[in-house]
Design a protein around this nucleic acid. Sequence first.
DNA 1: CGTTAGTTTGACGCGATTCAACCTTCGTGG
DNA 2: CCACGAAGGTTGAATCGCGTCAAACTAACG
Lengths: 285, 285
Amino acid sequence: MATTIKSAASTAMSAAVQRLASNVLLNEEEVEFFEQLQVNRVAYRRGEEFVTDGEDFRLSFLIRDGWAIKYKMTKSGRRQIIGVCLPGDFIGLHINFQRRSIYSVAALTDLEVAIIEPIRILEVYQKYPVLASGLDWMTVRNFNILSEHNVSLGARPASQRILHFILEIWCRLMVVGAADDSGFRMLMTQEQIADTVGLSLVHTNKNLRKLQREGYISVDNGFITFNDKRKAVEFADFDERFLEQFQTRRLISAQIAPRETEEDELARMKASTGAPSKVAVKKGA
Amino acid sequence: MATTIKSAASTAMSAAVQRLASNVLLNEEEVEFFEQLQVNRVAYRRGEEFVTDGEDFRLSFLIRDGWAIKYKMTKSGRRQIIGVCLPGDFIGLHINFQRRSIYSVAALTDLEVAIIEPIRILEVYQKYPVLASGLDWMTVRNFNILSEHNVSLGARPASQRILHFILEIWCRLMVVGAADDSGFRMLMTQEQIADTVGLSLVHTNKNLRKLQREGYISVDNGFITFNDKRKAVEFADFDERFLEQFQTRRLISAQIAPRETEEDELARMKASTGAPSKVAVKKGA
DNA sequence: CGTTAGTTTGACGCGATTCAACCTTCGTGG
DNA sequence: CCACGAAGGTTGAATCGCGTCAAACTAACG
């Protein structure tokens, strides 16, 4: 099962392009450019820390395959995982603004990433307004994810917090084709989940078992299945609009001829999930 | 005392410009344009909710004076405050991407805001690369603030969490000149603080008192004073780099002639707190 | 001078952490 | 091929932090 998912994610179109295509209509040229961005690749092994809090951080990463975590340590030695990075996610997209990292990043699984020089991202903003719009979308979405985490950590009890997190990961994996309707393979240990939802390992375990006992999820060898999604969403107080944000649109590329007028481009951005991006009014005014 | 601070914040240069100027070198033209952006003003009264979760949200706000909160309600009726908005902060800067709001915003104090059409923000990105760079900076900083909240909520005990939050607000107020070295006027009730740090009102009160008893802060009629900032920063596990981010640079405007070459512009962006922004390479390459 | 919003404090109980033990699976080396 | 250790999962019991309930207090305001 796991193998199927993995191969699906790494064929033909990269996860990153799938992510972008879920928000914005891409043409062939854009897809090609974005794939090209990812030529410079590196692999990390499970457990490897490849960005360290406080140290130099001048290159951006784009996850092609595998999962990673962004985290910080408190002075009392507790680890708080700030974000889980899935295929198609950037790490350090806005790195232009800081010379040193203010968090650490480690590979949760064996990892395949593309290393991207910040300059190339600027190039996206200069030359590919639709792609840029997609990147901005990703930034906004990450902000929303982080906000939801805040709500969970601050105002939701243990079991809801955990289920909410599981639902979030599932949504995000769906977009890049690494989950199916029934569920997904959870690649985090309970300790890592605990450090994400701000609970102790023991308490996380007990509530995870409770969620199973009460029929919200089934766990089989790391594969999490939702028995009744509606019930789970309800119980976890999961914002359905959040879910909508991740609904991938089927329309991808090849629907629009490569060389288009500026009006077409604007139209494509308007057709994206939301209003036109900041680059939309490129020369309008 | 409060009056002094307030008048200081609303004279001559707007808080927003002060914020931008703390990261980026602005010339007169840019300052003027940005002030002009804020001509369309509205006032809200303390307690008024002017953005509602789930409803239309198509205009951006820029706080000129007063404080506001962004929050969400959970289904169990708890309120989690996602962010405190201070003078110079945008609300809905990236609104282009969502038609409806996914949080509510309410005035914490009487509020004076500028209403800005998203199109005008696009204009900033088109025509004023240095200003745009400053806006991006603000976005990144907001992300960092939210990340720190995550760490606090997930991994820090009550008293540290509260003190950390107080220090954060102090830092942010310093940038816009609404706090001094000794402390600042806290304009939130304990209930609002509680909803921000994810604790009950009672427990927040008790720990707030403990912080006073143990000599970290003094509170006099809403004015919070740090008795020993070093000790407070240490106890709250407050990231000093976070603090540095907010250190305002003295160099503002008028240092560079209004009409400059593109190289000067690039240089000014490079001189900002960090590397050049994405708009830096406008026509380079 | 009463009313309301906000602060403060004590008592009680629950939820989460911690400690401690045991179990399973899996990879590695003898 | 089995023995062993390491990593991860599971469970119970004791403890502590935090939430809830309840009541009193203070200051601001009409």
